[in-house]
Each structure stands twice: as structure tokens, then as C-alpha cells.
Design a protein around this nucleic acid. Structure first.
Lengths: 124, 124
DNA sequence: GCACATAGTGTCGAAAAGGATACTGTTATG
DNA sequence: CATAACAGTATCCTTTTCGACACTATGTGC
């Protein structure tokens, strides 16, 4: 797998929990997965949803998700290149996790989100 | 909040997802929360469930969880010190997330946990 | 007056993650 | 021949995170 932070399963009763977050705790991974729940997307299409993510970063996150078997990368042999990303079966099986995160976030983001301290660049 | 990695909410439709994982993506946080779902625990009691976590690390994770309002720290004025940690209301409200992670991990850990890449030190 | 238990701290260093910025390759189009 | 589109790469650097290891404080029991 791609991530190191949670890849060691140091704990026992909780290690399946650790294993699961280990796959989605990159800076942009959960968001990418969330967007892909809505269907197949192209590279720049994903990028446009998270403008603060550099292409390098996005590539990295996508490659790790692919390595972990959560998404599928389909390259079309065209010349303005076309690459489509979509959830694999395994990726789709994470829907309950993503939904739970979304629900919790929606319900509680007021506690953490905007109050102060969001950077003045573009927060989209 | 304590974490920086996900504290900027760079994305919009997915930022509530980001907000949620931002609170549980420390190396040991999700595990601590998972254990605390089972009830109040003392410092060393938690430690014993994750022997690879140094006290310094555990303290850090617990402090961040407390800062984020997910757990409650109760200090008893005794002399072999006694400190109890438990989930706050907000922490308990994460149960669906934790459970979803656990279920997914239990169902799929075989794909990642054992196959390759677990280090030969003690995996407990 | 000394060790013991609990819940930590402090310091240092290595590794991982993340980010800024610039550049590449390939064809179709004008 | 120059330009543009798309999907990346390459290089370099900063920040964050993690870990090892040693050390602290304080009442109690011997």
C-alpha cells in the first residue's frame, strides 16, 4: 500500500479501524473519493474541484488510491490526453464511510470550519 | 482545532468530509476513539492497547482530541495520579464513522494487512 | 529516606507529507 | 511553423509528524 502513517497496524482490536483510515487520510484522498462517488471524472475535472491542490499532489493522491485498489484509471490513446478516474468495486464499498464522514461534517462543521483562520487565498 | 493537515477546507462540496477526517487522522486518534467507545479509560490503560505508541505521542493525540472537543479529560487529585479519558457528546456522535471504518476494515483488511508490507517487529 | 506507581515532559533527530514553480510530450488546428 | 489542450513530471524546499530516550513530580508504604 501507499501510505505509511497507518500501515503498521500497531494496535490490535482497533487495527481494522486504522487500516481503513490509512487508505483515506491523504490530504485530498477522501475528497477525491467523495467526488468520484458521483461518477467518473477526468483529471482536470477533479482538479477544478480543489484548486488549491497542485497537479503534482493530485497525481500522487490518485496514484496511491489506485495502488490501494480504490479507484480505476483509464487512459484513452488520444492526443489531448484523456484519463478517466472512477471508483472500483472496493472504492464504492467505502461509501458508508464517506457518507458517515459527510453527515458528521455537515452537522458539525460550524464548530470548526469558518469562524476564523481560513487563509485569504482562494478557498474556492 | 489541533490538526493542520485538513484544517483549511480547500474544497467546497467535499469540505465537510475533509473536516471530519481532519479530526481523526492522527496516527492513533481513531484507535483511541474506538477504544473509548467501550467506556472510560485511564492513560496507561489506553497505552496498553497500543504498545508501540510512546507516552509522548499518546499525550499529544489525547490533547488534540481534547482540544477538538471529542474527548473529556478528568484528573483526580490523587497521588499516584489518576486521569480518566472518555468520549464527549461530540465524540460519541462519531460512532457511525468509527463503526463504518471498523466494518470496512474487518471486511477488507485481508487485502492490505497480511499480504505484504507489515513490518516484522511486533505487530502485537 | 527510598523505592514505587501514574501520568506525564523535554530534547533531539529522522522521515514523511505537502507545496511552489517550471517544464514535458503529443497531435490537431490555424 | 506556432499555439493550444490535457495530463501529467522534475526539482527543490518547508512543514508536520513520528519516534527514541531520558527525565519529572508527588504522596504512600516499607
Amino acid at each position: 500500500m501507499a501510505k505509511a502513517r497507518h500501515s503498521r497496524f500497531d494496535c490490535n482490536p482497533g487495527c481494522s479501524v486504522e487500516a481503513a483510515i490509512g487508505l483515506i487520510d491523504g490530504k485530498w484522498k477522501s475528497i477525491v473519493l467523495w467526488h468520484l462517488l458521483g461518477g467518473t471524472m477526468r483529471f482536470n475535472e477533479i482538479r477544478r474541484t480543489m484548486l488549491n491542490c497542485t497537479p503534482r499532489m493530485l497525481t500522487k493522491q490518485l496514484r496511491e488510491l489506485e495502488e490501494d485498489g480504490l479507484i480505476v484509471r483509464k487512459v484513452y490513446a488520444q492526443v489531448p490526453p484523456k484519463v478517466e478516474y472512477s471508483l472500483s468495486e472496493l472504492g464504492r464499498s467505502m461509501e458508508p464511510i464517506l457518507s458517515a464522514l459527510k453527515r458528521w461534517g455537515d452537522a458539525n462543521i460550524g464548530l470548526y470550519g469558518k469562524p476564523q483562520g481560513h487563509d485569504p487565498r482562494e478557498a474556492t
